[in-house]
Amino acid sequence: MSILKKRKPNRSRWGDLFVYLVLLIFGWFFILPLLYAVNSAFKPLDEIFLFPPRLWVSKPTLDNFADLFVLMGKTWVPFTRYIFNTVFITVVGTLGHLLVSSMAAYVLSKYKFPGGKAFFTIVVTALMFTPQVMAIPNYLVMTKLGWVNTYWSIIVPAFAAPIGLFLMKQFMEQIPDVLIEAAKVDGAKEVRIYFRIVMPLVKPASLTLSIFSILNLWNTRASNFIYNEELKTLPYALSQIVSGGQIARAGVSAAVTLFILIVPLLFFIFAQSSIIETMASSGIKE
């Protein structure tokens, strides 16, 4: 009964049924490849090469993971080093991106000052330039800075990714000016307003931004700017393992796909559930 009582007053029962039906039918289509990837990781070799392929695994095994861990133990550089590289790049890159872009977004959304609007237009426009042709100019910039073969060549540009500023600015626009004015009357300084009032209110946006950033940095192969084996990233190292044998390592390859997916997947689930939890009752109020 409690669920029925919670229903919004202006919703029809047939409409709700329709919503469930649509989501279930389409959802199947969207989740299919993820299910396939998860199942494949547990398939023995004969099932992986079964044709036509089957979605569900019938004799699940951990052999693929065992093989993967054996191969990881044989790399020239200790495998933990690759994991550290990717974790470091992802964590520092995401935190820096969050701070740098939300600070800029705060002043761009809540203040008018000469050049602000033009700057924002340029940022949004830059989002539309094809990244492939920027590789060589970027390399020139990195050489000038002496950042080739360092973590910074991956981390620092990620701080200023246009998508983050754009997202944060759009959400901060929703914050009523009254809130900021009131804080000022109470004597709060800008830094305090930014940390104590603005950032908590856009928590769903910060979490969404972190998802974008983590998906991007976690999967980065960083092969453009990094040549030192000790500095290579996890996706790069894993792709080296897989390319050791296309057929013989098909099982390992399936395990790799799942292995690399675990962290983004867990963070995604964590972020989505806290987006839904935190704002469930509050919302942005006038």
Partner: peptide, 10 residues
């Protein structure tokens, strides 16, 4: 000052 770090990197 808030905008500066982003503007520089961008």
């Amino acid at each position: 000052a808030f905008l500066f770090p982003y503007a520089l990197l961008f």
